[in-house]
Design a protein around this nucleic acid. Structure first.
Length: 417
RNA sequence: GCGGGUGUAGCUCAGUUGGUUAGAGCGCCAGUUUGUGGCACUGGAGGUCGCCGGUUCGAAACCGGUCACUCGCCCCA
């Protein structure tokens, strides 16, 4: 630590930014509540196995990306890099498999040890939903619709494109993976270095390689859609029909994949090009294999997570500060009475600022530059007459109001446009 | 983890081929105005030039390292 800085990849959320985050979170909470998703929370850390067991062979994630540490008791713990595993763990450890289906909404910080970029922090924030129990494609449709509704209510849906793909069930996936590996082996020498490594570790990821040479090779590669069995095709058909019927627009993206073994059927992402390379703003899919990989019963699930920072950037400065009211004591003699008046107005349901430092001139100067719109001024003369001066700081108009009428007059003034 | 760019006041930035006390605008504080803001004028505070080392008579400037930010790659549960 040098020169008191926040830890790399973390940031303070000062009120302006916090207001944007809260707008995103509140919008998500309201939009998903309309579908019956209920808010819950899991701990920000778990036993490391909760996150490592479902990952299988997959590479860098565990060793390179997790924030892991041993506590004083020697337990190996990890700060949650995402919330789905925690929610499924909560379902298993709480015996909630007796109460299926479950529809959960969550919001909170996540942690990944990565190189920070725009829209990519080491501590970042997500909102998300998980729909546990049904394996029906209509559940997928509902989850995706909830995501689209959330983005629409936030006012950013028009900047996003919904990419949709089907990974098929376990059998379909395995068959395709084998065919893809066989094909790519014949072109291995022409693949990029990164993709040569992926071929051994996570071959499906080669499908979304950014390397131009890789993309050429993929032109003639076997297509995932050709390896879907009848059930998998039916699942995708049901989903897309439901989305079309509901007016949710989407594009088929055969290269959209998920590397981990517990994913199946639906994979989707809402993507934007408005905020840089980290353009996925909300993404999710079906994860029927996850519960068993965590040691629980077979429980199907589908859900999504969305990045609060990225959405706040997309939504921009849509947060407007509410006008405020402040009380100013004109003399030290009236300080106590002004303080009491502030409490009286707060009792009446009005938000009141009570600036204390400096002369009335100083205080009004500060107030004029802040979001304070109404100034209530109390001095000796007003005290004697049981009145106050009510000054509108935007227009400069001022009038004397009887204290008994003050709450009503202020309330009316705040409601006026 | 890999590569490019950038670090000078709270913010946005000047700073000549290396030269003596490092500047501007905005913001902040105070006064002109001891019961009333915005405007104006006057004054003031605020910097180890990210940090460490090197070259040099002399470094904010040149070189090396390091840290941070930023853009991209890897990864993206």
């Amino acid at each position: 630590m040098s020169k008191l800085q926040p830890v790399r990849g973390t940031a303070d959320l000062l009120p302006d930014v916090m207001a944007q985050h809260l707008l995103v979170i509140d919008t998500a909470r309201l939009a998903t509540a309309r579908y019956g998703f209920q808010e819950m929370a899991t701990p920000v850390f778990e036993f490391s196995e909760v996150f490592t067991r479902p990952l299988g062979e997959s590479s860098d994630i565990v060793t390179k990306e997790n924030y892991s540490f041993a506590d004083r008791g020697g337990e190996q713990l990890t700060l949650r890099p995402e919330n789905t595993a925690g929610v499924v763990r909560a379902m298993i450890s709480g015996g909630l498999t007796q109460s299926l289906p479950l529809k959960y909404f969550y919001a909170g910080p996540m942690f990944r040890y990565e190189r920070p970029q725009k829209g990519r922090m080491r501590q970042f924030h997500q909102v998300g939903i998980e729909y546990l129990g049904p394996n029906d494609a209509l559940a997928d449709a509902e989850v995706i619709s909830a995501g689209a509704r959330f983005l629409a209510q936030l006012g950013v849906l028009q900047h996003c494109v919904l990419h949709l793909n089907s990974l098929g069930d376990l059998d379909s996936r395995a068959a395709y993976r084998a065919a893809l590996v066989e094909f790519l082996k014949t072109h291995e020498s022409a693949l990029s270095d990164d993709s040569k490594r992926r071929l051994a570790v996570n071959p499906l990821r080669i499908l979304d390689s950014k390397d131009a040479g890789d993309r050429d090779i993929l032109q003639t590669a076997p297509k995932l859609a050709d390896y879907l069995n009848a059930e998998s095709k039916a699942h995708f058909q049901t989903l897309t029909s439901a989305l079309d019927a509901a007016g949710v627009t989407w594009v088929y993206d055969p290269l959209l994949v998920r590397g981990l073994d517990y994913y199946c059927h639906t994979a989707f992402e809402f993507v934007t090009d408005a905020i840089g390379t980290q353009g996925t703003v909300l993404g999710g899919g079906r994860y029927d294999g996850l519960s068993e990989m965590l040691g629980g019963p077979a429980v199907a699930g589908v859900g999504w997570a969305a990045g609060v920072e990225r959405l706040a950037m997309l939504a921009g400065d849509t947060v407007v500060a509410a006008p405020k009211v402040a009380i100013f004591s004109a003399d030290t003699d009236t300080d106590t009475a002004a303080f009491r008046l502030a409490e009286t107005l707060r009792d009446a349901g009005i938000d009141i600022d009570f600036p204390t430092a400096g002369t009335i001139g100083k205080k009004l100067k500060k107030a004029a530059r802040s979001d304070i719109k109404l100034a209530i001024i109390l001095g000796g003369d007003e005290m004697a007459r049981k009145t106050v001066q009510l000054r509108d700081l935007t227009t400069g108009t001022q009038s004397e109001i009887a204290m008994t009428e003050l709450a009503d007059v202020v309330t009316a003034a705040l409601l006026a446009p």
